[in-house]
Amino acid sequence: MSAIAASSSSAILPNQRGWLGTLSDRFWRQPKLSVFLLLLPALLWLGIVYVGSLFALLLQSFFSIDEFSGLINYEFTLKTYAELLRPQNLDVILRTVIMAGAVTLASALIAFPIAYMAARYARGKWKALFYLGIMLPLWASYLVKVYAWKLILAKEGILNWVFEQLHLTWLLDAWLSLPVIGGNSLSISYTGTFLVFLYVWMPYMILPIQAAIERVPTNLIDASSDLGATPLQTFWKVIFPLALPGIVAGSIFTFSLTLGDYIIPQIIGTSAFFIGQAVYAHQGTAGNIPLAAAFTVVPIVIMGLYLWMAKRMGAFDAL
Rank of each mutant, 00 (worst) to 15 (best):
S7K: 14
S9R: 13
I12K: 06
I12L: 13
L13H: 12
P14C: 09
Q16R: 15
G21W: 15
W28T: 08
W28K: 14
P41H: 08
P41T: 06
L46D: 05
G47L: 10
L57Q: 11
L59I: 00
F63Y: 13
S69R: 15
G70R: 13
Y74I: 01
Y81H: 05
Y81V: 01
P87I: 10
Q88E: 15
L90P: 07
D91A: 13
V92F: 04
I93A: 02
T96W: 08
V97Q: 07
A100D: 12
A100Q: 10
P113Y: 03
A118N: 08
L129E: 05
Y131P: 00
L132T: 13
L132E: 06
G133F: 15
W139C: 03
A140S: 15
L153A: 02
N160C: 02
V162P: 02
F163D: 11
L166T: 13
L166V: 12
H167A: 01
L168A: 12
L168I: 02
T169Q: 14
W170C: 00
L171P: 01
A174F: 14
V180K: 09
V180W: 11
G183T: 06
N184L: 09
S185V: 10
I188Y: 13
I188L: 11
I188C: 08
F194R: 00
V200L: 09
L207S: 04
L207H: 06
L207F: 09
E214C: 01
L227G: 02
A229L: 10
T230C: 07
Q233I: 03
K237L: 14
V238E: 07
V238A: 05
I239A: 04
P241E: 05
A243H: 03
I247N: 11
I252N: 02
I252T: 07
F253H: 03
T258V: 12
S271D: 07
I275T: 00
V279F: 00
H282C: 00
H282R: 09
I289E: 00
I289R: 00
A292S: 11
A293M: 04
A293I: 01
F295V: 01
V298A: 00
I300N: 02
V301P: 04
L305R: 10
Y306C: 05
A310M: 12
G314I: 14
L319D: 08
